[in-house]
Each structure stands twice: as C-alpha cells, then as structure tokens.
C-alpha cells in the first residue's frame, strides 16, 4: 500500500491501488442501497399502518389488481436478475461477447417489465382508479363496483399502490439507463478481466430493485387474491 502506484488503466488519481478503488466502489454502492432501503422503508411503514387501519379496504383494493400481469412481471424480474448475475460473471471472466449478450437480455427484460406496468397503469387510470382528485371516479355500479362506504379505504390502498410501484418503476427506468451505459462501455471494450467493477456495482442496484418487487408483489397483488367482493 505504501509504495506509489504507477499509472494503471482505469485507476483514478486519488486511489493508491485498483483494490482500493474497487473496494470504495463496492462499499459506496452498498451504502447507497442502505439509503434506498430507508427510502422505500418509509412507504412500507405507511403500508403497514394503513393496512391495519383499513384491513377490509386493502382486501378490496388488492382484489382490483391483475395478479396475472403482476405475476408475469415477477417472473420477468427474476429472469432479469439471473441474466444480470450472468453478465457480472462474464465480465469477471473477461468474455466481452457474453457480457454484451446478457446485458442486452437484462435490458430487454427490464423494458418488458415497464411495458407490462404501463398496461396495468393505463387500465387503472381508464377505470377511474387513479387516486388523484381530478381522476378519481371509481365505479359504484356494475361488475367491478366499489361500495361507496369502502371507497375511501380503497382510495388509500390505491395511492399506496401507485406510489410504491411508481417509485419502483422510476428505479427500473434508471436501471435501464445504467444498462444502456454499460452496453455502450462494454462495446467500446472498456471492461477487462481486471476492470469490471461498474458492471458488478450496477448488478447490485439491479438486484436491489428486484428485491423491492419481491415484497411489493405479495403485499399489493396477493393480499386480496382469496377475497371475493360481497362473498365471505
């Protein structure tokens, strides 16, 4: 450590060695994920409190969500996590072709997730279920009717749904941007066996976003899966 390092490809001037630079990047990303845990944590707290306040409303609201689309998205994200892990693996092996292939695959899966999310959102907004004052117009008659006395509780569930999944989707969009950057860098041959921490660090971010969804899926989609409105 004490000796002065001669110039190494990819080593910033203020670091002494590649190991130090890599460690700093990894620790930095993990601490960033720590802040992300607390960021989403505030919403998980709100979820917990409102679910105990409005248990019925949450069953009802959750029932409005499309489990098939949500489930598909869960699988899409799981596969994308695998492809991301593979991309990291091949970046460490120095295999540029496979790295590029898996990065591209991950990007496609991420975009597929966002596409499905778009379909879900537009259906909800079309049904008058976006909980802003200007768009909130829940059906009180017909097949998907929400009884008037439950509408406020369903409103609470739906803003939690939109805020949590919306924030998650923003993270996905950022993730897609990161993947595009990585693909460009990989294409230019920036990554070698010795210098690949950007891929590894981005991988951590991608997996974190997957983990958030792992919790969102049962909390939002599956809570009311066994529930039949008017039944019991």
């Amino acid at each position: 450590m004490a000796e002065h390092a001669t110039h190494v490809e990819g080593l910033a001037h203020h670091f002494v060695s590649m190991e130090q630079q890599k460690e700093a990047g990894m620790v930095g990303m993990w601490i960033f994920l720590l802040t992300e845990i607390m960021f989403f944590g505030g919403l998980f707290l709100a979820y917990t409190i409102y679910r105990t306040t409005y248990p019925e409303g949450f069953l009802f609201g959750s029932h409005l969500l499309n489990v098939k689309l949500g489930g598909t998205n869960t699988v899409v994200l799981i596969v994308s996590s695998l492809t991301m892990a593979m991309a990291v693996y091949y970046s460490q092996k120095g295999d540029r072709k496979k790295l590029l292939a898996f990065l591209a695959l991950t990007l496609i899966l991420g975009l597929a997730f966002l596409g499905i999310k778009y379909v879900e959102y537009s259906t909800k907004i079309h049904d008058g279920l976006f909980p802003a004052a200007a768009t909130w117009n829940p059906p009180s008659e017909g097949e998907h009717a929400i009884p008037v006395e439950k509408q406020q509780a369903v409103h609470v569930f739906l803003w939690i749904y939109f805020l949590m999944t919306g924030l998650h989707a923003v993270h996905m969009i950022v993730g897609a941007g990161i993947l595009i950057t990585l693909i460009i860098m990989a294409q230019r041959g920036k990554f070698t066996k010795n210098y690949n921490s950007p891929v590894e660090i981005s991988g951590l971010y991608w997996h974190f976003v997957d983990i958030v969804w792992i919790f969102l899926f049962p909390l939002l989609y599956l809570t009311g899966y066994h529930f039949t409105p008017g039944g019991h």
Binding site: I49, T53, Y54, P131, A132, Q152, V156, W159, L163
Partner: peptide, 16 residues
Amino acid sequence: LKIGIFDPKLGGDPVL
C-alpha cells in the same frame, strides 16, 4: 394531486 396520504378527511393519518 389531492391524495389522502396524510389528510384525515380523505382517510389519511397526520400522526403517521
């Protein structure tokens, strides 16, 4: 957006 996140009139909880 006039969402009832914390506003009790819309079902929110100001103590939260």
